[in-house]
Amino acid sequence: MKLEELRQIRERAAKDLTLRKGDARVKVVVGMGTSGIAAGARDVMAAFLDEIGKRELTDVTITQTGERGLASSEPVVEVHVRDEPTVVYGQMTAERARRVVVDHLVNGNAVSEFAIEVRE
């Protein structure tokens, strides 16, 4: 192994540790309360993880949270982008999740048709 190769390994391996750095640009929070899960939050979460993994978005972390009280809109997902208003999406599905990844996370355009709340 040469120093160059070592540095390549580091670049690759460092992506694996981004979770522990806490300096993500984007934080996706999936509501995983009982009603969220009943409405399909697990599939939404899986879709986010899959799509973000495929696109190698290393500056995104995905976490979950409990019930937010908006049962009729479950599954609910919050997207926090640094220095931007927080967008809350409702009635999410796996397909919608993939669209949010592409439009909002990658291209920076919040998907207004799924948004149920925007917080400054």
Binding site: L19, R20, L49, G53, I62, T63
Partner: peptide, 8 residues
Amino acid sequence: MRRRLDVL
């Protein structure tokens, strides 16, 4: 699939 939690 992307990992979302590291449990140390």
